[in-house]
């Protein structure tokens, strides 16, 4: 078995016009057993910065705690909010440091640059290899379904409301075929002045 298939879960992020959105499902499993149906995998790292960490949940939680610690330290030392690019470098180096004993997490980062308001989206594998030039990023058990849906449904310059609809449809239809994901989804739409968090219903079995 693959460590990603143990706890299950998916995460997807998308760029819009002056906004980004990131979503994850709510299922937490132990193999075929569903342990929780209220376990979003997206974590807040700043006012307009989120990271989704699907994978082995024990590692996701360790990684998110370590990251929050480093982000806090960074913001105290620098006396400014961390930029998504900087945060990506932080995640990357933390993951690649464990090249020969990795944390079993894939990461999806979404945020707006606090200075330029530029949308930022990236996905990384367990070793921290990721690029920043794609309009959407996916990770998790339904990776292929998410990628196909994003490729077909994504349109450039979506307004925040339209971005929400597209991303919701993407995650709803992707987890519909994924028995290790689902049980509802949370979608954060990040704009420069506000973050709108919505939950939607998806397959519950």
């Amino acid at each position: 078995m693959n460590p990603f298939n143990y706890n299950g879960g998916v995460c997807v992020a998308m760029k819009g016009k002056n906004c980004v959105a990131i979503a994850s499902d709510h299922r937490l499993g132990a193999g075929r057993l569903t342990v929780s149906t209220d376990f979003p995998k997206v974590f807040e790292m700043g006012p307009a910065l989120f990271i989704g960490l699907p994978g082995l949940t024990t590692d996701s939680l360790t990684v998110v705690n370590k990251l929050k610690f480093r982000v806090n330290l960074y913001e105290l030392r620098e006396n400014r909010k961390i930029r998504p690019h900087t945060f990506k470098a932080m995640v990357e180096s933390m993951l690649y440091e464990r090249r020969f004993g990795p944390y079993y997490v894939a990461s999806v980062i979404a945020g707006l640059d606090p200075e330029t308001d530029e949308p930022f989206v990236t996905a990384m594998d367990v070793l921290g290899a990721g690029e920043v030039n794609e309009p959407f990023a996916v990770a998790g058990t339904a990776e292929e379904s998410l990628l196909g849906l994003c490729e077909a449904l994504w349109e450039p310059d979506l307004a925040p409301e339209d971005l929400f609809e597209t991303l919701s449809q993407v995650i709803l239809n992707a987890v519909d075929f994924d028995c290790l994901g689902g049980a509802g989804a949370t979608i954060h739409v990040i704009e420069k002045d506000k973050v709108t968090t919505r939950t939607i219903k998806t397959r519950m079995d």
Binding site: K192, D193, I200
Partner: peptide
């Protein structure tokens, strides 16, 4: 299902 808005 539910919606929350937070100011940045």
């Amino acid at each position: 299902l539910s919606q929350g808005v937070r100011k940045v």
